[in-house]
């Protein structure tokens, strides 16, 4: 994959960050019981799947993983229509301890949409948030419970997370040419 920006995390660093988050999730929740992981499409999903596999390796218990599309819950329908992908949550969220996963936390609007989408499916015991990158510039009172790396950025910069399941490589790239 061709990139013109600077690589701020390479494959090993991403792997270590996700592994650490998996341990933190288990520790904070005192085990994998009743845990469920939901990735936000598109790049939150592979991270959610990796977290699910790691937690299973560490604890020997399989954790359900879902895939969430938030197009129907966005707050910018009037100006921009995201393609509607298929949400696949193959479990009941009621009373689950849900870890919501996204690749980059920026304005917080995506997370707001995702929280509404999950609430429409049932009433989880609680929802925590895991992100690979927190780049700041929040527009809503949202914070992550688990962060791979805090990355100070200018608002105009763009942060791209490449994941091998989608992009063929693992890397976090920052570039000035963000739109």
């Amino acid at each position: 994959m061709v990139t013109d920006g600077a690589i701020v995390m390479d494959a090993d660093e991403i792997r270590r960050a996700i592994t650490r988050i998996a341990h933190e999730i288990i520790e904070r929740n005192k085990g994998p019981e009743n845990l469920a992981i939901i990735g936000i499409q598109k790049r939150g999903v592979p991270i959610a799947q990796r977290l699910g596999q790691l937690i299973e390796q560490i604890e020997g218990v399989s954790v359900p993983v879902g895939s969430l599309n938030i197009a129907l819950y966005r707050d910018d329908f009037a100006t921009r229509q995201a393609p509607v992908g298929k949400t696949e949550i193959p479990f009941n969220v009621k009373d689950k301890r849900v870890v919501l996963v996204d690749e980059v936390l920026f304005t917080g609007r995506t997370i707001r949409s995702a929280l509404d989408a999950i609430m429409d499916m049932g009433r989880p015991a609680y929802i925590q948030l895991a992100v690979l990158i927190d780049r700041g510039h929040r527009e809503l009172p949202v914070r992550a419970d688990y962060v791979g790396r805090n990355l100070p950025t200018a608002r105009k910069e763009s942060v791209e997370v490449h994941l091998r399941e989608i992009d063929g490589e693992d890397a976090v790239v920052i570039s000035k040419s963000g739109d």
Binding site: N69, L72, G85, K86, T87, E88, D120, M121, G122
Partner: peptide
């Protein structure tokens, strides 16, 4: 193709116990 893909995704909403989204 866009309409059919979008409709396939909408079927998930129809399968939910509470069939309502706030989009429109």
């Amino acid at each position: 193709r866009l309409i059919l893909d979008t409709a396939l995704s909408m079927k998930e909403v129809l399968a939910r116990p509470i069939r309502k989204v706030p989009t429109l």
